[in-house]
Amino acid sequence: MLKISKLTKSFNGLNVLKGVDLTLESGKVMAVIGPSGTGKSTLLRCINFLERPDSGIIEIDGVKIDASCAKSSEIYRLRRKTSMVFQNYNLFRNMTALENVMEPMVTVQKIDKASAREKALELLGKVGLAEKSDFYPRKMSGGQQQRVGIARAVASDAKVILFDEPTSSLDPELTGEVLEVIRRLANTNITMLIVTHEMKFAREIADTMIFLEGGLVAGQGSPSEIFEHSGNERIRKFVSMAMEG
């Protein structure tokens, strides 16, 4: 489903990603953990070309793209295979919750408005916001906005949904509702890549985990391999610190 090889990215001489390889099968959930500043966000942003990688191959659902010579038509095709849930929600402020969720269907997939509306209402229902469908983002709490953001990401016909710390801008009492929505999504057949600092949550929903450090995948395995049986001392340290803190 998602295959990345030798992905590199640098910002004015600072090598952030130094050759990341990963593979994620259809319907699986992968959690990405690692210390701050190791390139987790950059990795996600490179996967849908919000940042242009320097080199490497990205392949999603049959669309294969070589970053060093990607054409813009290829980039658009690749972007339609992914969608992103942002730390700051990034809802369209000129649209209601419903319109936000309809937008990828109407503008990108060209689905007719009536069906898009129906599907969007159904998705809003699934994230528990049916009664907020006519609210503008500024009238919603962070948790509600993020749930709309998730519904919008699902509404695109993306094969992989990328989450970049979806709860880290939220007040602690609001993280639960968002995690619950992601948990339910994880139980459906959606493929997800999640960057998170919520270790308990990551452990619970992930099928596989990668530990990113210094721009490389420093460890990879099932949650129990990462959390309990890692041979890598830095991973053990990071995990135990994160679990406490």
């Binding site: 849908n48 070309f49 919000l50 658009y76 972007r79 339609r80 992914t82 969608s83 992103m84 942002f86 700051n88 990034n90 809802l91 369209f92 402020r93 000129n94 937008e103 990828p104 503008t107 990108v108 919008r152 990401a153 695109s156 990328l162």
Partner: peptide
């Protein structure tokens, strides 16, 4: 804000669509 524009692109919208659907309506106000 840049974030909303990135949201457009991440959903597969083109530059033009992002301008017409998201940037201009807000800029106009």
């Amino acid at each position: 804000d840049r974030g909303q524009i990135e949201a457009c692109y991440s959903l597969g919208m083109t530059k033009r669509q992002a301008m017409l659907r998201v940037i201009l309506p807000q800029a106009f106000v």
